[in-house]
């Protein structure tokens, strides 16, 4: 892909649900070449020291492709966990644990967005009750101020700023923002409205995927 033309659509998304036999819910999501696999166990037994009497304990484990998780991986894990805790109706399952594992398999840009989207699909697959769905969209600002939606790793490298937005499915409000680099308020708002429009595609994709899985053929 040439860097001069700005991309204004999401890359091809493909997903597979329930592909692992052990977990209660699992999903692999591809956004272009980026690939993430997520699995959910729960609600299940919780360790006494992690027990919360009014809600389920949400555990998220992010596994990098190679090596041990470092600082960046831990912060990514935290972002995913916070998003997950926001949407999950954990108060329905007090004194239990929900454990989520997110495995990075291929990073070709927009990794965090792919992680959150695959997490959402895995939760959908597991049948856990949620307040709403979430869709994460990543975009990149280059030095001329052009917006690249769902950027590849090459585009990320030559970028002024990288921003990831997470929207909810009800009011399309921002649930989480992760931004790196320099940008003005106008640029940020532009990115947000572009990503918000793109998030509709992802919600449509969720709906289609679930309809395909659950409909009688």
């Amino acid at each position: 892909m040439s860097n001069s033309s700005k991309r204004s659509n999401l890359r091809v998304m493909s997903a597979e649900l329930s592909l692992l036999s052990r977990p209660d819910g699992s999903a692999t999501l591809f956004q272009g070449d980026t690939c993430v696999m997520s699995a959910v166990y729960g609600p299940g037994e919780v360790r006494i020291n992690k027990e919360q009497i009014d809600r389920a304990t949400v555990e998220v484990i992010y596994k990098p492709r190679s090596g041990l998780p470092g600082c960046t991986e831990k912060s990514q894990e935290r972002l995913i966990r916070n998003t997950c805790e926001t949407v999950l109706l954990s108060s329905l399952h007090p004194r239990s644990s929900v454990s989520l594992t997110v495995q990075e398999m291929q990073n070709s840009g927009s990794l965090l967005a792919c992680c959150i989207n695959s997490m959402c699909l895995a939760l959908l697959d597991s049948g856990m009750s949620m307040k709403c769905l979430v869709a994460a969209v990543h975009c990149v600002l280059d030095f001329e101020g052009a917006v690249f939606l769902d950027a590849t790793d090459k585009e990320e490298k030559g970028a002024q700023a990288c921003v990831t937005f997470v929207f909810d499915s009800v009011d399309k409000n921002v649930v989480m923002v992760h931004a790196v680099g320099k940008y003005s308020v106008e640029q940020f708002n532009k990115c947000m409205s572009v990503c918000r429009t793109a998030s509709a595609d992802i919600f449509h994709f969720y709906r289609e995927t679930m309809t395909k899985k659950l409909k009688r053929s």
Binding site: D150, S193, V194, A198
Partner: peptide, 23 residues
Amino acid sequence: VTSNQMKGSEINMEDAEEQASAL
């Protein structure tokens, strides 16, 4: 049945810009 694929639709950047300025 458990898998699905989607091609992202084109998003009008100018519309987004207008929305942003309105914001």
